[in-house]
Design a protein around this nucleic acid. Structure first.
Lengths: 126, 126
DNA sequence: TGAACGTATGCTTATGCGTTCATATATAAG
DNA sequence: CTTATATATGAACGCATAAGCATACGTTCA
């Protein structure tokens, strides 16, 4: 008997470790959760958006302020803000002609903080 | 006097809020940190990689095991593992013909946990 | 109402990225 | 040394996306 398993679709290996595989399979996240997670991280994966979030972590800002802080044009900033809005990471209020943005969730700061720890520690170990 | 400021490059607005902008500018991350952060999040922004990290959070696995767990072909898994390796999120050891992968950093679990909280809470509030 | 201003958005382009295919490397067995 | 197996890697294809341009929308003021 050559292999302890042999599901045809996935891989030709015969050295699969069943108990480890089973553990891993049981730990799998639901598809919906997985997609939501990856989309959340995708929002954080762009430097411009990180700068926006960092700025908003200190104070509410209007779009014009953000173009000033980031040195980007208004269209680019608005596009990124739209994405942050869709991800529900920022909220906004209109005041006359200006629209003010602010962070929408407490977890955002936590995520950034933990990630920053990872990054800076990695730095040191280099 | 029409505007309180008017740096030409960024934006034609005249309603910039100087004290808020200053606060935000002071909070800016260094460019290197910013890039490192965004690259870290980029690694987390793909469902396949999240599945790999979730699986490895439970147990060490060889490449063949991972193809089994994920139902992806070996090449795709290896490419993703290479990326995780470059990001120093996983380490690996060779044992005969097999290569076993494991998580490389304690922060990874934390980041995932906090993000998961955000995602699931968002779920509930819908 | 019309003009001016702040902001949002559709379209386009350039770039990036995930997967697959083909192939290369590494280890083990005969 | 040859063959088989496990993994890695380069090239290419298709899709997603960030940024810029032009323009539309919403608000204020005259």
């Amino acid at each position: 008997m050559p292999a302890e398993k042999s599901r045809p679709g996935s891989c030709s290996c015969s050295v699969v470790h069943p108990q480890a595989v089973q553990l891993a399979v049981q730990a799998e996240l639901e598809t919906g959760t997985l997609i939501a997670l990856s989309e959340l991280f995708k929002v954080f994966s762009d430097p411009s958006r990180l700068r926006i979030l960092t700025a908003l972590s200190k104070t509410e800002l209007c779009v014009c302020d953000l173009t000033e802080v980031l040195g980007m044009n208004q269209s680019a900033v608005s596009h990124q803000l739209a994405m942050l809005r869709r991800a529900r990471l920022v909220r906004f209020r209109r005041d006359g002609k200006s629209v003010f943005y602010a962070l929408d969730d407490a977890h955002i700061g936590k995520i950034l903080k933990v990630a920053l720890e990872h990054v800076t520690e990695g730095r040191i170990s280099l």
